[in-house]
Nucleic acid binder design. Structure first.
Length: 110
DNA sequence: TGCTTGACATAAT
DNA sequence: CATTATGCCAAGC
């Protein structure tokens, strides 16, 4: 694995349990604005047993992108209190983690 | 060296 | 809402 990915992994580790973050969000936290795709690539290359809460990273539509581990990821999130709707989506408005940066342009919730 | 793919985002339709 | 088009960059071939 590349050391470049360590930054991404560290950003993922900052996500608290019970919250989720999008790939683009993680990319920005890792100092790679616009490089969301690389975040996905980094997680794909992530080795098992690493201390990285990969399941808290979902796409911008609130859906799980991983096909093989989708079920597993959903279980992990539900175990942390994250709820899914009928369409297997997470309410980003409620569970998106707002932290890490003071320059976050995210709108005030509800 | 160059083209294709991909755990994505964003804007437009 | 969903689909499509475009940008981004690393890996595979």
């Amino acid at each position: 694995m590349s050391a470049r990915y360590e930054t991404i992994y560290q950003a993922v580790r900052r996500i608290p349990a019970g919250w989720v973050a999008t790939y683009g969000q993680v990319a920005r936290l890792a100092g790679l604005p616009g490089r969301a795709r690389q975040v996905g690539y980094a997680l794909a290359a992530l080795e098992a047993g690493r201390d990285v809460p990969w399941h808290r990273v979902i796409n911008a539509q609130g859906r799980i992108s991983v096909r093989d581990s989708a079920e597993r990821q959903r279980e992990l999130l539900e175990a942390e209190g994250v709820a899914f709707d009928d369409r297997d989506r997470v309410s980003l408005e409620r569970y998106r983690w707002r932290g890490g940066a003071a320059e976050d342009p995210w709108l005030p919730l509800v």
